[in-house]
Design a protein around this nucleic acid. Structure first.
Length: 412
RNA sequence: GUGGCUGUAGCUCAAUUGGUCAGAGCUUCUGAUUGUGGUUCAGAAGGUUGCGGGAUCGUUCCCCGUCAGCCACCCCA
């Protein structure tokens, strides 16, 4: 027997209804904000991610599914932003539409060790708004994220925000760290010693208390932000307050991807355990230029669909179903039944029947299990009268209806 | 990638110190006199106890390996 490869999941009909609700809710809310959908390939040149996420990030170094062919190395996308900025530029959207608001829904791939809330194929619902550096965009994007959560029926989340500063600020902070860090290095945990080489800023959000103490003795907090970045961040916070969005400023919040600058945010939920971030995002003002485009500000975020669905009571309600179940008795009725089924479906009435030659009792059970609202019974008695018995399953009432009136009867 | 825990029917779990213990509930299927569901009752089906070694007269229960899942770290959505 074949098995799923580790870290992937089959989403069975029982669950797909929740997925459809999440997706439909998201699409509806995106439309209120005038975001339009973009779909890009799940594969890209591997070097695209190298360039955008950062060559030393764990995702690029260890977690990409690579596909080697004779000439190139492709990667299954580990996230959406890089592909979308690539597509934005390749299709000249900066020339044809200038400021652009896009959303995407689809699978992402990372070769991590599977865990609850961490799969090797998982799904993002995200947005990218490209072409503005204004704080009003940061505010809209974060409020959109919260609006989605409300739409999904999720409560009890926490919005954490921070500003990394512009590229210069980030570099200055990194440089300061690299200068003052070497003497402290032996006192840091093993992970932080590694971070010191790869991604110095991540030392800021180490959970180890000793590391935290050492970091505090170094230059940290928002003191490294230049006046422009500081003003921008203040404006964002004011805007969020004006909208009544409650958030928490977390100076240690550092996103793991290189392209982020200025505003970053993360939304966590305490009911999820170790992998508690249900969504995150931020600004990436230099990414468009980095990929060969003009100087354009941009901001985005993504939710992890699997993680959203882990939140208790989120989107569990199944919409009431309407189904008509046809039971036929005997050969003559069976062939007449095929036509009736066809007519019902053409009239857009969901209809099904028994395919196992069950007894009437067995077929009734099957109808009940299928959630039928009405059962149609067609036997010799009915055939003679050109009629059919219609049973309302909710209240067990039954009546005979002429075949010519059947659809009208079921429509109301 | 690191550490720990777990792995018995489709699902949730039992099985005294290794010796008729491979079981229950739910699910599924079939019946309960003629063409009627949900409740109830009866019966049936379903397991090489994750897989592979080892120790033992003998193991679901012990040891080793392996795979998978879970938890934490790491990483991140």
């Amino acid at each position: 027997m074949f098995k799923r490869i580790p870290g992937t999941k089959d989403i069975l009909p029982e669950e797909t209804s929740s997925w459809q609700t999440v997706e439909a809710t998201a699409r509806r809310i995106f439309s209120f904000y005038n975001y339009r959908e973009i779909r890009t390939p799940v594969m890209e040149e591997a070097s695209l991610f190298n360039r955008t996420l950062g060559a030393t990030t764990e995702i690029v170094q260890k977690q990409m599914f690579l596909i080697h062919n004779q000439e190139d190395t492709y990667a299954l996308r580990p996230e959406g932003t890089a592909s979308i900025v690539r597509s934005y530029l390749e299709n000249n959207l900066e020339k044809t539409s200038g400021f652009t608001k896009l959303y995407y829904i689809g699978p992402m791939f990372r070769l991590e060790r599977p865990q609850k809330g961490r799969l090797r194929q998982f799904h993002h619902i995200g947005v990218e708004a490209i072409g503005s550096t204004l704080a009003s965009l940061d505010i809209e994007v974060i409020s959109l994220a919260e609006q989605l959560l409300k739409g999904f029926g999720i409560t009890g989340y926490q919005i954490k925000i921070n500003s990394l500063g512009c590229q210069k600020d980030k570099q200055a902070l990194s440089a300061a760290f690299k200068k003052s860090l070497p003497e402290k290095l032996p006192q840091l945990c093993a992970d932080c010693q590694r971070r010191a080489k790869n991604n110095v800023l991540r030392i800021l959000d180490c959970k180890n208390e000793d590391c935290q103490k050492i970091v505090k003795t170094l230059e940290a907090g928002h003191t490294h932000l230049c006046p422009d970045c500081r003003n921008h961040f203040e404006e964002v916070k004011r805007g969020l307050n004006d909208l009544g969005i409650s958030f928490q400023v977390v100076p240690q919040l550092v996103r793991g991807l290189d392209y982020y600058n200025r505003t970053v945010f993360e939304i966590t939920h305490s009911d999820l355990g170790s992998q508690d971030a249900i969504g995150a995002g931020g600004r990436y003002n230099d990414l468009v230029r980095e990929l060969g485009g003009p100087e354009l500000g941009a901001m985005g975020f993504a939710f992890g669909v699997e993680r959203l669905l882990l939140v208790p009571n989120a989107l569990r309600q199944n919409p009431p179903k309407k189904l008509v179940y046809l039971i036929t008795l005997g050969e003559a009725a069976k062939s007449a039944g095929i036509k009736i089924l066809n007519q019902l479906r053409n009239a857009e009435i969901p209809a099904d029947t028994d395919y196992l030659n069950k007894s009437l009792k067995g077929a009734m059970r099957a109808a009940n299990d299928a959630g039928a609202t009405f059962v149609l019974i067609l036997g010799d008695d009915e055939l003679k009268k050109h009629a059919i018995s219609v049973k309302d399953m909710a209240n067990s009432t039954q009546k005979e209806v002429f075949l010519q009136n059947l659809i009208q009867e079921l429509k109301c």
